[in-house]
Design a protein around this nucleic acid. Sequence first.
DNA 1: TATTGTTATACTCTATAACTATA
DNA 2: TATAGTTATAGAGTATAACAATA
Lengths: 168, 168
Amino acid sequence: MTKSASTPRPARRGKQRTVAPNDAPKEVDDWLGRNLSRAANTVLNRFQEVFSEYDMRPALYSALVAIENNPGASGAQISSWMDVPRTNVVILLRELEERGLISRGRSDEDRRAQSIDLTQKGRRLMPKLRTAHKRLEAEFAASMSSSERQLLNRTLRRIWQAGPSSAE
Amino acid sequence: MTKSASTPRPARRGKQRTVAPNDAPKEVDDWLGRNLSRAANTVLNRFQEVFSEYDMRPALYSALVAIENNPGASGAQISSWMDVPRTNVVILLRELEERGLISRGRSDEDRRAQSIDLTQKGRRLMPKLRTAHKRLEAEFAASMSSSERQLLNRTLRRIWQAGPSSAE
DNA sequence: TATTGTTATACTCTATAACTATA
DNA sequence: TATAGTTATAGAGTATAACAATA
């Protein structure tokens, strides 16, 4: 069984910040890695809340988008498009198949490869997921100017694209 | 035993990007959460490489900095300063103690609380770790202007500080 | 009742080694 | 030899519940 077949994770309790806001600047305030990790985690938490009714994780959602954007692609092609190691994509694909959102046939030309597509159930789900995702993005975009948001995404891409490709 | 007592993790193989750079813009290119996660992961990988000779993880390093900045503090105070749940700080403190980098006595005023300090070994290690960390920061800062870097850190802080405090 | 420290456990993403089947 | 798919396993960070000891 997959874990995600269980009850959706309860949204984080929205605890109030009780810490006094007069915190002095800390040595760690400008650590890039720390700020990135914590920001990523904040977005992850909101993702789980926004998508709670769909029992959807970010990696699962991006796999669905990859499949929708590459109809009939093989797992290796999905892996390459997502830039995620094949070995980790396998788990996502199995889970999506178990949930009836994708189908995996055998390719005619290359009998090693699969031919992956959204099922009708999957195709029907996508617009709802996209709506939820747009809501999530808009929520964070609300606290930035448009140019600031674009610069942020460009800067972040420059950071991670400088590293080695994650696709195996 | 703690895992970190084992051999330092081998630095990631620096694989060349073989993917053709003519990738068309993808739907996922402007996903904030994805860009944040991947950027954070890139910095994490570099952290592991730069700190490989010290067998040091980011969380462990930031705990050391927290302790150095709060001599004699309790675990709860360290947790609050780091803004990390107590339950996760416990693991870091135990590991640091096992490695002889910190000492944990009992507080005189409150017999529940500990009084945490760097050991001499820990104090001697800190300058080396700081040097490595400065190198790491400088490496990523090199690809940005100073104002861009400041804006980035400010934006990231705004994102994660908007969420609930992680300190329990 | 509340706080301190702790154990146990789970979840998400990422990473590597090793294997089978096919090319 | 190389590629596609898979299994198993590990590491890093984050999260919650529950407990004993102390306040």
